[in-house]
Amino acid sequence: MKRVQKGHVTLKCWDLGGQPRFRTMWERYCRGVNAIVFIVDSADRAALPVAKEELQLLLEKPTLDGIPLLVLGNKSDLLDHMSVDELIAALDLKTISHREVSCYGISALEETNLDHVLNWLIARASH
């Protein structure tokens, strides 16, 4: 677990990893959270169908119903990355109901859009 502090808000973050062996644990860590952050490699188009399937399986869990979802397309600094609109389409985000859904392109390397992400999370931390 990592703690991120911004102003008077402390965010607790777990990096659950995307490897198949960790996926069965995702739901356990998502219980009682204010938001679910789902990060994909926006430059790895071949991995998107599996990411879409795993995201749908996660969101079907009754214990996670209504929890806001933030999808982040990492590696927006690479030339061949998918746009936010392409990610929304590839992951069928417009079909998700019963929860707030947002999607941003980010670059962890260049720290692109990380302030927007933190502000989004902080706004949901008080709910």
Rank of each mutant, 00 (worst) to 15 (best):
Leu118Phe: 09
Phe38His: 05
Leu79Val: 03
Ile39His: 03
Cys103Gln: 03
Lys52Gln: 15
Trp14Met: 04
Leu11Cys: 04
Phe38Glu: 01
Asp85Phe: 12
Glu53Cys: 06
Asn34Trp: 12
Gly17Tyr: 01
Leu121Lys: 02
Tyr104Gly: 05
Glu27Tyr: 11
Val117Glu: 01
Leu59Thr: 06
Leu109His: 07
Leu58Ser: 03
Leu87Met: 10
Leu70Phe: 02
Gly18Tyr: 04
Thr63Cys: 10
Val84Glu: 13
Asn74Ile: 08
Lys61Asn: 14
Glu86Thr: 06
Leu69His: 09
Glu111Pro: 00
Ala90Asp: 00
Ser42Leu: 04
Thr95Ser: 15
Lys75Trp: 04
Leu57Pro: 00
Phe22Trp: 12
Val71Cys: 00
Ile36Met: 01
Trp14Thr: 01
His116Arg: 15
Cys30Ile: 11
Glu54Leu: 05
Thr95Ile: 13
Asn119Phe: 08
Thr24Trp: 07
Ala35Trp: 13
Gly32Lys: 06
Asn119Gly: 00
Leu91Ile: 11
Ser107Thr: 00
Tyr29Arg: 03
Gly66Val: 11
Gln5Tyr: 12
Ile106Lys: 05
Ser83Gly: 07
Asp80Leu: 09
Leu118Trp: 04
Arg28Ser: 14
Leu48Asp: 08
Ala46Asp: 11
Val4His: 11
Ala108Glu: 01
Leu64Arg: 04
Asp15Gly: 07
Lys75Leu: 02
Ala90Arg: 11
Arg45Ser: 08
Gly105Trp: 04
Leu78Asp: 05
Leu48Glu: 06
Gln56Thr: 15
Glu54Ala: 10
Glu27His: 13
Phe22His: 13
Arg23Gly: 05
Lys2Tyr: 13
Leu118Tyr: 08
Thr10Leu: 12
Asp85Gln: 15
Ser107Ala: 00
Leu87Cys: 07
Asp65Gln: 15
Ile106His: 05
Asn34Tyr: 15
Tyr104Thr: 03
Glu86Ala: 08
Gly7His: 10
Gln19Gly: 06
Ile106Trp: 00
Met82Cys: 07
Thr10Tyr: 06
Val117Gln: 00
Val84Arg: 14
Arg31Met: 12
Glu54Pro: 04
Ile122Asp: 09
Trp26Ala: 03
Lys61Ile: 08
Met82Trp: 07
His8Met: 04
Arg124Asp: 09
Arg23Ser: 04
Val37Asp: 02
Trp26Arg: 06
